[in-house]
Write a protein that binds this DNA or RNA. Structure first.
Length: 430
RNA sequence: GGAGAGAUGGCAGAGUGGUUUAAUGCACCGGUCUUGAAAACCGGCGAGGGUUAAUAGCCCUUCAAGAGUUCGAAUCUCUUUCUCUCCGCCA
């Protein structure tokens, strides 16, 4: 959510910046509503003021034992007038609120302007793309061959498409990856590990920006009506972890807060039918190790570089080739002001695929959540900045390991850093 | 799931329809005093919003949340959420 005062005073400029990400801001509608809002709010508050002072007079007159009948006559009709004013004001406020919640974040001025993913900028690359003296298989073929380690057929029977059953050494490798990532971030990068709810309430989803616009991307325990009191399965640990800061005021010394959590993520993948239907790339349920930082506003951009580096470190230690993309205005997520995507090399597809997305949300989520810090004892609290990134998506990392570390006979070498988590084994074979 | 109790400012804790503009204490901030500190004393001290050039004034909202009664609600009524105690069930 953008600052309403800023939105009001810099309406044209805001519309221009939002246009770079393909969002059309209805300037005329907002100005008209703002004008109504101002008039109605002033009028309503004036009526409230009258009611308060007159009621107080009645109380004092009564205490003195005076006749209050004339005073009561004075306030007659005031209540009805006030109710009417309130109803009008509430309607306008609700409309403005709905608009405000639907406006995406302003892109940072350093973000390249572009229409879609073709406008993204490659920032750097790491690692050499492996060459094979045989035709590399994709992870589905490799996983199914390894004693049915990746079992999509049974997943369909149990749940449906876009689910998987993992078995044996593949299941263990999947677990090893998550453990390795958590240990790295907690022991080397200074994050505190969290275990969080996988079902969250509506307030949390509004806080991080999934609602009101993206309810269709989530699984809900009740129909996704706005008034529904049901819970929703988390699409990312960003939701429960970032919402720890909701309605909180941190001391300056408490910042930055750095959290990591390994959770399953659930996405309905609405609108993606037909895309990535094969394999683990796009699932309804997948595991992710998430990184979240709550920072002072002045430090959030530096924190984004740092957090992205923490995610990169995972790929580096696993020896997986990747590139870092700076997303353009048109390809960024709803709440982000600046985003880096990490894309890992997948030999079977002969291309880079997204494996992590690291974003500085600025004060966008903090304003929705009222997540604040006190810059100085006795001073007013200010909004903090929130950041999050995948460190990494576990399923896609598994895909990358299988494909990049495959050998001619279909066996998989295990990267050295994972071997302690795999009982000392150096490779997986059927 | 059943029975009961409860939810007030950073914390503790008064307040059961109108001098409550939420008492008091602790914590915190400023000042006086002091070589300095402590103590004592004096003053200040929640959050959100509107108006405004204003971080000045003035005003509105806020005592878990929502709805209601009333000229007036922390206080009365209803609903919801959460917490605690006991019982049941359970990993």
């Amino acid at each position: 959510m953008l600052d309403s005062k800023y939105l009001r005073s810099e309406l044209t400029q805001t519309a221009e910046r939002l246009a770079t990400r393909g969002f059309v801001l209805d300037v005329a509608q907002i100005s008209a509503l703002e004008e109504q809002r101002r008039e109605l709010q002033v009028a309503t508050q004036e009526l409230q003021n009258q009611r308060n002072s007159k009621s107080k007079n009645i109380g004092q007159a009564k205490a003195r034992g005076e006749d209050i009948a004339p005073l009561l006559a004075e306030v007659e009709g005031l209540g009805a007038e006030l109710d009417a004013a309130k109803i009008k004001l509430d309607a306008v406020l609700a409309e403005l609120d709905q608009i405000a919640l639907s406006i995406p974040n302003l892109p940072d001025l350093a973000v390249p302007v572009g229409k879609d993913e073709t406008g993204n900028l490659e920032v750097r690359r790491f690692g050499d793309i492996p060459s094979f003296d045989f035709e590399p298989k994709d992870h589905v073929a490799l996983g199914e061959a390894l004693a049915g380690g990746l079992d999509f057929e049974n997943a369909v029977k149990i749940a449906g498409s876009r689910f998987v059953v993992m078995k044996g050494q593949i299941a263990r490798l999947h677990r090893a990856l998550a453990q390795f990532m958590l240990d790295l971030h907690t022991e080397q990068h200074g994050y505190t590990e969290l275990y969080v709810p996988y079902l969250v309430n509506k307030d949390s989803l509004y806080g991080t920006g999934q609602l009101p616009k993206f309810g269709a991307d989530l699984f809900h325990t009740q129909p996704a009506t706005e008034e529904g009191v049901g819970m929703s399965l988390i699409p990312t640990a960003e939701v429960p972890v970032t919402n720890l800061a909701r309605d909180r005021i941190f001391d300056l010394a408490e910042l930055p807060q750095k959290y990591t959590a390994h959770t399953p993520c659930f996405r309905s993948e609405a609108g993606s039918y037909g895309r990535d239907t094969r394999g683990l790339i796009r699932q309804h349920q997948f595991d992710k190790v998430e990184l979240v930082q709550l920072t002072h506003p002045e430090h959030s951009m530096a924190a984004l570089e740092e957090l992205t580096g923490h995610a990169e470190k995972v790929l580096q230690l696993l020896g997986l080739p990747y590139r870092v993309m700076l997303l353009c205005t048109g390809d960024m997520g709803f709440g982000s002001s600046k985003t880096y995507d990490l894309e890992v090399w997948l030999p079977a597809q002969n291309t880079f695929r997204e494996i992590s997305s690291c974003s500085n949300m600025g004060d966008f989520q903090a304003r929705r959540m009222q997540a604040r810090f006190r810059p100085e004892e006795g001073k007013k609290p200010e909004l903090l900045h929130t950041l999050n990134g995948s460190g990494l998506a576990v399923g896609r990392t598994l895909v990358a390991i299988l494909e990049n570390y495959q050998q001619a006979d279909g066996s998989i070498r295990i990267p050295a850093v994972l071997q302690p988590y795999m009982g000392g084994k150096t490779e997986i074979r059927a």
